[in-house]
Design a protein around this nucleic acid. Structure first.
Length: 616
DNA sequence: GGTTCCTGC
């Protein structure tokens, strides 16, 4: 077998970190040590650079040691594109080794593996699971950690290999009982890090200046600037273009070309693709990005990184039942990840627009894991179905705030998924079958009861489709019906169609018939209402804010409430007040109680009646 | 009239 070995001898028995008692073992050139250690340990943690080939190497060793005989090696990634591209790369590498029988590891997202535990709690079909990029701490990764820890205890033949960035390795090792940590050296170049001498007043301005300085005085190499969002990116690009233009017209010397390229996830795909095209001869690229360029996208040729030190993050507030999209200083780990982007093609430089003292004293070592800042409805449902009765006792590596768990349980109870003692109801058991957020699963099941599964199925599928085409097909009473309208009139929506057919399969297995209500769309609104009545609002003093709706309903339910500069209800549907009473009698009672509590307490006016802004 | 990045089928 001629797969180049990247695992190299890297010093014997180094201790890992000053406080650590864990010894880093060594992977030798011939790989026999790793084989032996995998043999001797059920769980190991592997520290290595992204793309160092560690998963390829590990699966090869595992194969050699017979772990693929009559069993499967599973390898998880946090993102689907990554899972697919790793699978592709590995299969290409395999093809070059003619005549060798190789059992491909099964690549998937961690979310897929998590859902597999629903059907097979012990994951019997897997002999080994490799969790790649576990340091990213996706919601699914964190839930899987707790579940796999139990699988490891129950199945002595089962192996778990967790790969991680340096910072998290010891924590991961401790979680699984001080398991061995391995180090695989990376292949990146050193990055020189320069800090701002004083705190920076306006990082957009500072970034633009720094980029110009690099462009005019530093050797060739592309620039990558990290900003928080679309607005700042547009402002930076505009300012950069303007300054370059000024220089061109005022300077007698020739100003080299600078190709200014914004990138963020909302940017249309054809514009996104531009960042991967090489710059014209003699020109330099300057990419201005959100944190999409931190992990999701990798551009080669970057030698200069300019880091604002900030990023946006969604934070769930259980008291308000609302997500807030807020700007935060990034963590040290994220800042280091950003800096590392300058060292992929050669020795690079990272300009941090904040002081070294801010880096050392004000930034968190790691980002707050997603599980601690999100609505846990799905997690609760899933764990309940795995017969984890007391969620507060579940072995989370970093437990979510108790308030988040209790609030999510309350929401599930309101939806009828949990009974009074916190067990799954019949509806709850059926909701688990759907890979959907609990309200959407509920909407489907209510569609069954109300005779409109066909319509509701489309609406649920469309919520995952882009909202770009929505405007033309506007239905005044309901954003949700607008989505149905879009789908019915323009059936070229690929993603929605795929999702729809897959959800339809699940309906079939649950023996729920596909029934249409024709044009009687009121029942559809009722189904929407039944899913969202915990997200209900009475409109008050909204004035001009409703101009897009055409008329003013008394009550609406909404898909999501997000706090940005203002509070925004996203995807709202007008409902009749008596529907709320019919469909959610328990809720109404609880709400009255809570309102009375609130009136007594100091907590706020804000929650009583939300004046709101509509997004068509 | 606006919002970082992801996921399940």
């Amino acid at each position: 077998m001629i797969i180049p070995l990247i695992l190299k001898l890297n010093g014997l028995f180094n201790t890992f970190g000053a406080s650590s008692s864990v010894i880093i073992r060594v992977l030798t050139e011939d790989g026999c040590v790793v084989n032996q250690v995998v043999r001797e340990n059920q769980v190991i943690v592997v520290v290595g650079e992204t793309g160092s080939g560690k998963t390829t190497q590990l699966t090869q060793y595992l194969h050699e040691d017979g772990y693929t005989k009559g069993a499967i090696i599973g390898c998880t990634q946090p993102r689907r594109v990554a899972a697919m591209s790793v699978a592709k790369r590995v299969s290409e590498e395999m093809e070059t080794d003619l005549g060798i029988k190789w059992v491909m590891p099964f690549y998937m997202t961690d979310g897929v593996l998590l859902r597999e535990t629903l059907k097979d709690a012990d994951l019997d079909k897997y002999r080994v699971i490799i969790m790649d990029e576990a340091h990213e701490r996706s919601l699914s990764t964190d839930v899987l950690f707790g579940i796999l820890k139990k699988v490891v205890a129950r199945r002595r033949d089962f192996k778990l290999i967790v790969t991680s960035a340096t910072l998290n390795a010891e924590k991961f090792s401790n979680f699984f009982g001080s398991v061995p940590i391995f180090h695989i050296p990376g292949r990146t170049f050193p990055v020189n890090i320069l800090y701002s001498q004083t705190p920076c007043e306006d990082y957009v301005e500072a970034a633009v200046k720094q980029a110009l300085t690099i462009h005019l005085t530093s050797p060739p190499g592309d620039i990558l600037i990290f900003m928080t969002g679309q607005d700042e990116i547009e402002a930076s690009c505009y300012a950069l273009a303007e300054r370059i233009q000024q220089l061109v017209s005022s300077s007698s010397r020739a100003v080299p070309e600078l190709s200014i390229l914004p990138i963020y996830s909302q940017l249309p795909a054809d514009l996104q693709a531009k960042i991967f095209q090489p710059a014209a001869a003699g020109a330099r690229k300057c990419i201005v990005a959100t944190n999409i360029a931190e992990t999701s996208l990798t551009v080669d040729g970057i030698l200069y990184v300019i880091d604002s030190g900030y990023g946006k993050m969604k934070v769930y507030n259980p008291r308000m039942g609302m997500d807030a999209l807020q700007v935060f200083p990034v963590s040290r780990a994220a800042a280091d990840q950003r800096a590392g982007r300058a060292g992929r093609t050669g020795p690079g430089t990272c300009y941090r627009l904040y002081t070294e003292s801010a880096y050392l004293n004000e930034m968190l070592p790691n980002p707050v894991p997603e599980i601690q800042r999100t609505n846990l409805g799905n997690v609760v449902l899933l764990l309940k179905s795995l017969r984890v009765d007391n969620l507060l006792d579940f072995d989370f590596m970093d437990p979510p705030p108790q308030e988040n768990i209790l609030n999510s349980m309350y929401q599930l109870w309101v939806l009828g998924a949990l009974n009074n003692v916190g067990g799954l109801t019949e509806i709850g058991w059926r909701m688990v079958e759907f890979p959907l957020d609990p309200p959407l699963a509920k909407m489907l099941l209510m569609g069954d009861r109300l005779g409109c599964t066909d319509e509701v199925l489309t609406i649920v599928s469309m919520l995952s489709e882009s909202d770009a085409a929505r405007e033309k097909f506007f239905v005044p009473e309901s954003d949700h019906l607008t989505l149905l309208n879009v789908y019915q009139q323009w059936r070229g929506l690929r993603k929605a169609r795929e999702v729809r057919s897959q959800l339809l399969d699940i309906l079939k297995t649950l023996q729920i018939p596909l029934v249409s209500c024709g044009m009687d769309w009121d029942v559809v609104r009722k189904a929407v209402c039944s899913a969202y009545f915990h997200n209900a609002a009475r409109l008050k003093g909204v004035g001009d804010a409703l101009y897009g709706l055409g008329y003013t309903p008394d009550h609406v339910v909404y898909h999501e409430l997000v706090l940005t500069t203002k509070e925004y209800m996203q995807c709202a549907t007008a409902v009749e007040a008596h529907w709320l009473a019919e469909l959610g009698p328990i809720l109404r009672e609880r709400e009255r109680e809570r309102e009375r509590e609130r009136e007594r307490g100091r907590e706020g006016k804000r929650e009583e009646e939300r004046s709101c802004h509509f997004l068509p």
